[in-house]
Amino acid sequence: MLLYEIERLRRDQPFSMTMNHFHDHYEIYYLLRGKRYYFIQDRSYLIQEGDLVFIDKNELHKTRNADIHLHERILLNFDDSWIRSIDEKASTHLLVPFQQKQHIFSLTGANRTFVENLLFSLLREKHQALGGWQLNSKALLTQLLFFCSRITDKISSAQEDPPAYNPKIFEIVAYINEQYRNRLTLASISESFHISPSYFCRTFKETTGFSFIEYLNNVRIREAQRLLRETKLKVIHIAEQSGFDSVAHFGRVFKQVTTQTPLECRKFIRHNV
């Protein structure tokens, strides 16, 4: 089944994402109004009106409040099947914006007007659902992705979080991303990076939007999903290779993060290849 979704949403009250968030499809986030902090993989970015955000498959991400509570955004999601339905070889060109180190495109002037017109047209096509709307939506999305592929080097990325966010936290995030298979605890990381546990917990949450355990579990479960998808390893071995001490703990955390058991996930993957 093809995945393609687009929605426009405005919020007038403070809002920060509470759910752990990564998925096996592509996401485009466009901020029409306001400001947001956007954590992607191992960095936080301050995004503003006119910023276009590209999230690749299985990239950990989360948005949270900035100093302006009101914000309005457009969110577009699609999967590999949707891209292949445009053209079997389309991914070579269309997915370039998701494969760059630069996640954020800051749009101004004619570039901003062009992108907003494409997004509004995509919203209108999905809402009206007239004959041929899917075909036209694919054409519009193709224009958007080609445009962003070609201007990658011409527009500046959004600024990263201000220096008030301790760069040591980003060192710790990078360390977790590399060492998640090993036993990692609050105490061991605090000792290794010479900071107090209480300061670490508070600053990590402020910077990333995740608690230490939430982030570690997400990194480990993302690896487990990859192993379920790409190997025939037994669940007990996947648990070990993902950094879990026991298969029971692995199963509980996996279902908490994904709403599926590991075996349900593997069965779903096989049925949807």
Rank of each mutant, 00 (worst) to 15 (best):
L2H: 14
R64Q: 07
N218S: 14
W133R: 00
F250V: 05
L60V: 09
Y175I: 08
S85D: 04
S137C: 02
L95I: 00
I74Y: 08
M17L: 12
D87K: 09
E88R: 11
L186I: 08
I172Y: 07
S198H: 08
S157F: 04
E72C: 03
R112A: 11
S91D: 07
H25T: 10
Q134D: 05
I151L: 06
M1F: 08
Q48P: 08
E206P: 12
E240S: 06
Q143C: 13
T185Y: 10
N182W: 14
V257E: 11
I68Y: 01
Y45R: 15
N111Y: 02
K89P: 10
N136M: 13
L228V: 00
I86F: 14
D245G: 13
E27D: 04
Q48H: 15
D56L: 00
H23E: 11
L75T: 12
L60H: 06
L94P: 03
G34M: 00
N58Q: 15
T261G: 02
S188C: 09
E264S: 06
N65Q: 06
Y165L: 03
F212T: 06
K255E: 03
L130R: 08
L227K: 07
T18V: 04
S192M: 05
K57Y: 06
D79I: 01
A248P: 10
L46I: 11
S149N: 14
R36I: 00
D67Q: 05
R226A: 07
I213S: 07
R202K: 02
R84V: 04
F39N: 00
P163A: 11
P162R: 02
R10F: 05
T231F: 03
H271K: 15
T259R: 13
S121G: 09
L70Q: 10
A129E: 02
Y29E: 14
E178R: 13
H61W: 11
T261Y: 04
F105W: 05
A110V: 15
T261M: 13
H103C: 12
L118W: 07
Y180V: 02
E59V: 05
S196K: 01
I83C: 08
G50Q: 09
F105R: 06
I74N: 02
E240H: 10
R222I: 01
Q13M: 15
L119G: 00
R150E: 14
N111K: 06
W82H: 11
N182Y: 09
E7H: 14
T142W: 04
S198D: 13
K62Q: 11
K205S: 07
L119T: 00
R11H: 12
S81T: 11
I83G: 04
Y199Q: 04
L119E: 01
T113I: 12
H93T: 13
